[in-house]
Design a protein around this nucleic acid. Structure first.
Lengths: 209, 209, 209, 209
DNA sequence: GATGAATGAGTGTTCATTCAT
DNA sequence: GATGAATGAACACTCATTCAT
């Protein structure tokens, strides 16, 4: 009654550690795969490639994921989550519409160039199963709508000039998606720097004169 | 010796006609393939798909192209040619550096959304054979360099604020490359309109204040 | 106008021949596969095995069938067709109910041991896709129902003693399905002989005393 | 030397208990597997399925069996033992040859539909290792021979008409093997009933008139 | 010029099996 | 006794490519 509790804790810790290990390994798998997908493309990356990078054999991957498409889906989900996080941050910000749009841009780029390595976006959308594709499409549409709403808000409060919200989103999202292809976490330009500059481009491009 | 020349001419014409036919058909093939690649991705487009769209069978394609990669290469080449054309147009323009950069942007988008159908800018770059990849990479680098030179010129003549030329090019090229994924020739927004707006975004983003 | 018709015919023949060749090859594929499935089981027979027996490579099979399951389905369909044929023959026969049941049994065994080689029955039912499984199940149920109806008719006209139709069908179908495993077309007992004997067993087992 | 014996006994008991537990668990494993094999087929039943039904994980099975094939072999052995039991019962019976054959049939079906659940007669024969296949084949041949001998005896004593013993065995064994596919222990028709009817069919099919 | 037929290389996926813990 | 994790072998399937006709 005095000593046992510690054992219980120990057990709990041990089990937690196991679950955590699983989660950590799965996460590493997704991350490595995401990098590979971004760098060489989904179809140019075989499961053998991913497995080799993780130092295991191909079937071992199936202990952590259901299929190759499952990995891709996980990547998209993470990407969307980053987008949603940046969006929530921007929406809750005090300031003009322009401020919020710029904050979104900056935060989004920061997140994408951060821990997850700018590998989350763009990736082969058509390789998703119909069901997952629907889910991702829906999430993207939601993101776009909120993005456009932010812009419209800026136009209404006079901080943003009369631009077409849809085209503006396309314009900026292109810049971001393209990052996948040239950004390297260990490259000469650092993520925060890019975030600042891209946000600045966007501000200048749309602010009221 | 009196009658023959006519025949010769006839043959020559015939052959020319034949060559032209060949060229026309090959061109049609490339164009259809480019659209398909842009819309669904290189790996999601089988030669059977392309052949079906042209109303022939798969092996018939091999009369016009050497391989699937050959088609992709041709697409990249055309894309680069459009870039070079826009670039030449901009470089030969009188006006400030900013004017030239904006002209480049606008002309480029016009060309990409024009006849060739916004299908020229391809992301499947890794599917190219090493040799062709080198050629395309070189051409892109040339384009980027000239783009940056244009920007630097604008900074020097005071028409463009002090931006990082490299990052600026990345920023804008992303917007353009991403068009491939959302632009539809028969969509609601017309190509010229997009060209005008995108060029305007770029102008505002970088012009001196 | 006098010579052409022949050419037309020739062409037609040529095309027909091509279609026939395709059909013949596909049929050969199914037959070989059916034998292999019967002899060694569906899962013990790889597509490589089948291809090797046909003297082609595995992917060549896909020119004729959609999948391995497709082959299995074709086998079941043929089996059902043979059953339906025997059934129609028996149903249209004059005579007592017993006569018809016995005729069914005999004709069915004759067909199964005939051209198609006792390979049509039983084969791995669970490997079928849900849709195809439903189709096959439905056909089997129809066959069973008509079989039972035949028996009931015999009971009614007094030629068959009061047996349970369902159990009787199970009893006899078991004997037939099991043939797959021991009957060899080149074995010592000839198909017609088996048909006669099995039909005789059934007659004696169920006739009125 | 004075105190030990008790301990020895205790150990012995303990070990016996342990052995019995082992045997009981192994037996449960085999039984569950046999049902699954019968219901869905050998290849459609994964070790994970079996483990799940037993509430353990896959590797745990390897404590009780050497391999999946080992399980299949055990099933065949049990099936053969039931056959041998029915056979011994029939052979030791007083009465005509026909009586003995009918008794065999009835007893065999009773056993197969009994405790072991109609799951003992397996068709997946080719999945056995060569060595085990030989053993099973030999046992089956022995069973068949004794079955045929019983029939021949009946022909000799005039109780059975002049049928081909081999074909008769095939005929009846088919009916029995097929039971695997339709008999359900909890179904509407009870095992003893089937045994009676099937034995009756066989009697009528072969008895002297 | 075009097609039917076939091939070879590669890839995702499953699953029985092993082993350290 | 049992589990988590990993492996090797096999297999169905796809697709760009070739070639005789």
């Amino acid at each position: 009654m005095g000593a046992r509790p510690r054992n219980v804790d120990a057990w709990k810790d041990a089990r937690q550690t196991r679950d955590e290990q699983f989660a950590a390994k799965r996460s590493a798998l997704i991350r490595k795969a995401a990098r590979a997908f971004s760098a060489r493309g989904f179809y140019n990356t075989s499961l053998d490639d991913i497995a080799a990078q993780l130092g295991v054999t191909k079937p071992a991957l199936y202990y952590y994921v259901k299929s190759k498409e499952d990995i891709l889906y996980a990547c998209h989900v993470i990407s969307n989550e980053l987008g949603a996080e940046a969006m929530a941050y921007a929406e809750n910000l005090n300031g003009s519409g322009l401020d919020r749009v710029v904050a979104l841009a900056r935060r989004y780029v920061e997140l994408l160039t951060g821990e997850f390595g700018a590998s989350a976006v763009l990736m082969e959308f058509d390789a998703l199963r119909a069901e997952n594709r629907r889910a991702i499409t829906a999430a993207r549409k939601r993101f776009d709508r909120r993005f456009r709403t932010l812009i419209t808000g800026g136009i209404d409060d006079g901080s943003i000039r009369k631009v077409d919200p849809k085209l503006t989103v396309f314009f900026f999202m292109g810049s971001i998606n393209w990052m996948t292809r040239w950004f390297r976490p260990d490259g000469e330009v650092e993520g925060g720097e890019i975030a600042r500059r891209f946000a600045d481009y966007l501000r200048e491009a749309i602010r009221s004169r």
